[in-house]
Structures are given as structure tokens and as C-alpha cells.
Simulated scan of single mutants.
Amino acid sequence: MARRKKIYEGKAKILYEGPEPGTLVQYFKDDATAFNAEKRAVIEGKGVLNNRLSEFFMTGLGQIGIPTHFIRRLNMREQLIRQVEIIPLEIIVRNVAAGSMAKRLGIEEGTQLPRPIVEFSYKDDALGDPLVPEEYIIAFGWASQQDMDDIVSLALRVNDWMSGVMYGVGIKLVDFKIEVGRVWDNEFPRLLLADEISPDSCRLWDIETGQKLDKDVFRRDLGNLTDAYTEVAKRLGVMPSNVTHRPKPTLIN
């Protein structure tokens, strides 16, 4: 079997050359990182869960007319996706004050915001992904004013759908981040939702108990990350409700 060409490796995924022009294979790793990769671990099964959950979210968003880079899932860890030109921004949508926002503004974590707030950070690990205003984005040519209007509209539509889906299974969508990429139809650019949507990129709290079901479990040492992600997958029907995470078998001499 021919060895695939690696295009890019990030903290949680690897991109390989796809089988057809304009496509890539996105591989989900078990690596977990936090605090700009200062904290690292390998969490068995995380990549499989994120692959399945991202497929669920991308498919659902596509069905309501939000264009995404997702084509299909290939196996337990890989997806076939469209190759896009990534806009160098993380788009963050916040419904509840938590994490860096609560710390930055001195707001008690868990405070409901008066409306969804959209923030932007510049994708650069060395700089700590700093928050940037729209003026910077437009001035430095990362995106046009029309792009920004479209990105905000897309992010709020994602928020509406995701909030409803998660509420239906007893989970509060606290916040999430997405990435957006461009594809070109002849000479006209089109924006697509890219990267992934998974508990790695969302804050998810149980509505009744406040239990965290996202990467804060790893950030704050609150328990088993795979168990938290499995709970989200079970509630959404992505995995059977009787599935439990099993450790690797131990060889007995």
C-alpha cells in the first residue's frame, strides 16, 4: 500500500493528501493538549470519539444549509474533507461566561450572557492565540468586511442549531470555537465551516448537575476525559447507550 503524503500535523489531527484533487484525509489523534500545549497527554479513544461526534455535527449542520468541508467518514479515525484555504482565525461564540472570558472580565463562571457574543482570536500558538478586533482582521487582510459579516452570520447559525440539539439531550452549550475556510468557485470565493466540532472545541455542561463534559475535564483534572466524551456521544445517539470505554487488554504470562 502506498504511503500517504502528510500535509500538516496539528495538536489533535493530521491532514493527509486525499484520493482526489481538492480533498484531504483528516485523521483524529488521541493527543490532548491544554494551555497552548503546555499540558499534554494521550487519551485512549479520544480521536475515535471526536471523529464520530464531528461527523454528527457537520452532517447536521449541512442538512440545514450550512456549508462545511466534511464529505464523509472513512473509518473510525478518518474523514474525507474538502481542501480549503483556512482563514487564520478562531471564531469563538459564547453563551455563558466561562474560561478565559470569566477570568479576563472578572465575571463569575456560569453567568448567562445577555446575548451570544462572538470573539475572534488570531491563530498563532507562539503568541497564545490573542484576541483581535474586526478592525485588525480587515486591516491585515485576513478577511474582508463581507467575509466578517458572513462569518458572524454563520457562527450564530451554528450556535442556534448546536444549542437546540444539546439542550434536547440535557446539555448546555456554554461556548465553542470554529474555523472557517475558503474555496474558490471559478473566481468567486465561498466560505465553509472547517476543522472540527467536538467536545475538544466546545464547553458542554450537564443542565441539571453542571458536570463538565468537555476538555475542561482534562484542563482541570476533573476525571476521565474519554468517559465525558462518551457520555456526550451516548446522549446524541452517536454510540449505543450500553457502550463503556474499555482499557487496553493486559497480557498475562
Rank of each mutant, 00 (worst) to 15 (best):
R203A: 00
C202V: 10
I107F: 00
W205H: 01
V84Q: 10
I86D: 11
R203E: 04
G60D: 09
G60S: 07
E20P: 04
Y16G: 00
K39F: 11
A126Y: 15
I252F: 13
L213M: 09
P247W: 01
V165I: 14
R3M: 15
Y16V: 05
P19G: 15
I252D: 15
S163G: 04
L192F: 00
Q146F: 15
V96E: 02
V25R: 04
F120I: 08
K11E: 12
D160P: 06
I178C: 09
A37G: 12
K46D: 00
K177Y: 02
D147K: 10
Q146L: 15
I43G: 00
N75M: 02
I87N: 07
F70G: 02
D200T: 01
R182K: 11
D124G: 11
F120D: 08
E20Q: 12
R94T: 01
I92Y: 03
E108I: 12
R182F: 04
D125M: 03
L15F: 07
V243A: 11
K103H: 13
T59Q: 12
G106D: 03
P249I: 13
E119P: 01
Q146Y: 14
L191Q: 05
E38A: 12
I107K: 10
P130W: 06
S198N: 04
V238P: 02
R157T: 09
T209M: 06
S54I: 09
L192W: 02
G65R: 04
D31L: 14
V132W: 04
A12E: 11
P189W: 11
T111A: 01
T33N: 05
N75D: 11
N50R: 00
G47T: 03
R182P: 12
L74R: 06
F56H: 10
M1T: 14
I14R: 07
R40E: 02
I43A: 03
D149A: 14
R104E: 03
A37E: 14
L236A: 08
T68V: 06
K13S: 11
P21K: 00
E196T: 04
Q146N: 14
V217P: 03
N159Y: 01
F188T: 15
N95V: 01
I14N: 10
I66Q: 02
A12L: 08
E109Y: 11
D227N: 10
F120M: 07
V132D: 05
Y27S: 10
N51D: 12
K11Q: 09
I252L: 14
E38G: 13
E55D: 11
E179S: 02
L74G: 10
A233L: 05
W205Q: 04
V84A: 13
L213P: 12
R77F: 13
K234Q: 06
E85T: 15
I137F: 05
L156M: 06
G106Y: 02
P133L: 07
T209W: 01
L225H: 08
V25W: 07
W184P: 06
